[in-house]
Design a protein around this nucleic acid. Sequence first.
DNA 1: TAGATTGTTAATCGATTAACAATC
DNA 2: TAGATTGTTAATCGATTAACAATC
Lengths: 211, 211
Amino acid sequence: MESEQVTGAKEIPDIVVGRLPIYLRALQRMMEEGRRLTSSQELGERLGISAAQIRKDLSQFGEFGKQGTGYSIEFLAEQILHILQVNQVWEMVVVGAGDIGSAIARYQGFANRGFRVIKLFDSDPQKIGQEVGPFTIHNASELEDTIRQAGIKVAMIATPSASAQGVADRLVSAGVKAILNYAPISLNVPEDVQVQYIDPVIHLQRMTYYL
Amino acid sequence: MESEQVTGAKEIPDIVVGRLPIYLRALQRMMEEGRRLTSSQELGERLGISAAQIRKDLSQFGEFGKQGTGYSIEFLAEQILHILQVNQVWEMVVVGAGDIGSAIARYQGFANRGFRVIKLFDSDPQKIGQEVGPFTIHNASELEDTIRQAGIKVAMIATPSASAQGVADRLVSAGVKAILNYAPISLNVPEDVQVQYIDPVIHLQRMTYYL
DNA sequence: TAGATTGTTAATCGATTAACAATC
DNA sequence: TAGATTGTTAATCGATTAACAATC
């Protein structure tokens, strides 16, 4: 094909982007296992995804494999890290220091996967000043200052539902561009701000349909 | 159309089932707001989903609306509760009493949404016997007995990655049919067992692509 | 009645899969 | 070389959207 979109590079489907972190996680696991090479078939079997789909997805970004031998696990992982921009560490703030906020602030799983929590906030005077693992709970009134000064782009909301939209508005106004929301409520944000949701009940209800 | 699948009722696409909990959550929020009626258009605007899609999705299960007036929020919510089988309370066990396991055991958001945690397990002798909110941490060796005696069908895994597959195998052997896995690893389970995953890093990495 | 909104059909759009030449 | 596996094309499959008759 010789025609090309004038508007710029070809658009990568969102659903493809969404699978890259899954591929990356599997590749990093294989690295821990000491493996060197893999194939679209093996990766697909591990993940329950067809080999063709994995090859198709990866081909959107470049040619990372070798015919006959497959993919270097380390090389492919490195490529995906770059594509997802997680070959750097994104500093995050957590808003809401209840059970969930405290647990995610202390979560060990961010290390080596591109993220680090730098500060934990709450608006409850009873909680402000208390320690949660290595964190001191800060007054939520300092939210904007912290975000602006540290150039924070990523935040997690773990407040009650009633506060979540208000917190989101403040995060966005201070420059946050990606929000992971643990409050069970849909957020309205500008188009250029990414939002993802974690609500365990949504997942559970999806499963009980089949029981 | 007069033909009918001999194999049984028409198959509902998984992606449609996956949206029902989202609809339900929005409807329950509207109920809290004291609303009585809604429309596919309003619901769609709240959720960022097209009105046509919502009507199409719902039409897979029956006719729940009225031309000209829309949907009774309470009635539609009730119908979806039934479809998803969350018009009952599913008792759950949580395996792993670290930060995450303790937080989800105490999570207030399960109430009124069809789920209740009844027991929390860990294999660490240091933790067994300790209290976590209203729960006492039980020895993971009692897992199978508890599940069989209480007829538990739903479980959450919040162990380290290395233990997750082993725990899943034990859950399945004891009769669990739905697993929500917080460990960042893909699980292999029989076809008749549902698995859903919660890994915040997957969501975060999906967003950083666009930053 | 006039206006609004459903449920459904057909058309469109997009994603997945199958197949295979290229090549390591 | 023979075997294996990629990257890519074309075909298939499935999901979304647009449109509208039905009707509250």
